[in-house]
């Protein structure tokens, strides 16, 4: 009885999720879908999404490796507080993060100074990158922190006695041993970056052919009634999600053979 009941609920849930996806991909026929994907606007959105998400993912990796290492390995004053603060974007609605970014770069002397030297975030593709970074850095940080915590510092100690400087020891032992965590974290950060909407909308706005990523394109075309283009954008987002989920499951769950 319990078995039948629980499995039934699971099946209903699966059907529900599947129907969402099927509704999108079957809304238009294949010909219209391909034409829409080939359109200049969707091509632009794909390109902009790929470029911004790849750059923001790289930024997340570059920043998260040293800081998650520090949080995993060292004790310092204020560590607990810092841990909480760097996790904050996880709980914060992206829209709120976006407002914060808009205010930081649009109204403060720091933001004005950056704009003066040519680094403009507000209503530019650069804003999309910083928005994706701000929202996703915590995911990468958490994954890397637990990855590093799972690796004994003694590997580095041994490497140091074998002729490595502390940095070489890290680069030659802990870092290569973290590659599954890096890949899993990178993929989830990237796919979240591609789907990022709220924060990017706040900072970069929704300007056709300028700050039009796939989700923004979906939103713009939905609002203007261009359903075919909206569906095209949605379909591509679905494909990307499925691919990244697949990679994440495969790499993230690899039990270390060692």
């Amino acid at each position: 009885m319990l078995k039948i009941a629980t499995i039934s609920i699971t099946l209903l849930l699966t059907t529900f999720i599947l129907s969402l996806v099927i509704c999108i991909v079957t809304h238009t026929n294949q010909h219209i879908l391909l034409t829409s994907i080939a359109s200049r606007e969707i091509q632009f959105a794909i390109k902009l999404s790929l470029i911004t998400s790849i750059i923001s993912t790289l930024m997340c990796i570059i920043v998260s490796i040293p800081s998650s290492y520090a949080l995993a390995r060292y004790n310092f004053t204020g560590k607990t507080l810092i841990n909480t603060i760097v996790d904050l974007p996880l709980a914060l609605p992206p829209l709120v993060a976006g407002v914060g970014l808009l205010l930081l770069f649009g109204t403060t002397p720091f933001g004005n100074w950056l704009a003066d030297i040519g680094i403009k975030f507000v209503f530019t593709p650069l804003g999309i990158i910083i928005a994706q970074f701000a929202v996703n850095i915590s995911f990468m940080l958490r994954i890397m922190r637990s990855t590093f915590e799972g690796i004994s510092p003694r590997y580095e100690y041994v490497a140091q006695t074998l002729g490595c400087t502390p940095i070489q020891a890290f680069l030659r032992t802990t870092l290569p041993m973290s590659k599954n965590g890096l890949l899993a974290g990178g993929v989830i950060t990237w796919s979240k970056g591609i789907g990022e909407f709220g924060a990017a909308l706040m900072v970069a706005g929704a300007t056709r052919m300028k700050t039009e990523t796939l989700p923004i394109s979906l939103y713009l075309n939905m609002s203007s009634g261009d359903l075919d283009l909206a569906i095209a954008a949605a379909t591509i987002l679905i494909i990307i999600s499925i691919i990244s989920l697949y990679i994440f499951e495969k790499r993230g769950s690899i039990v270390h053979l060692y």
Partner: peptide, 30 residues
């Protein structure tokens, strides 16, 4: 002095062999 300049060899209870390297690369690491 840094550990690397002390000419010291270290062996731990739980071996600490580098899992991403072959036995040959492990032994040749230093």
């Amino acid at each position: 002095t840094l550990p690397k300049d002390r000419s010291i060899g270290m062996v731990y209870q739980d071996y600490m062999l580098f899992p991403h390297l072959t036995v040959e690369k492990n032994i040749g690491f230093g």
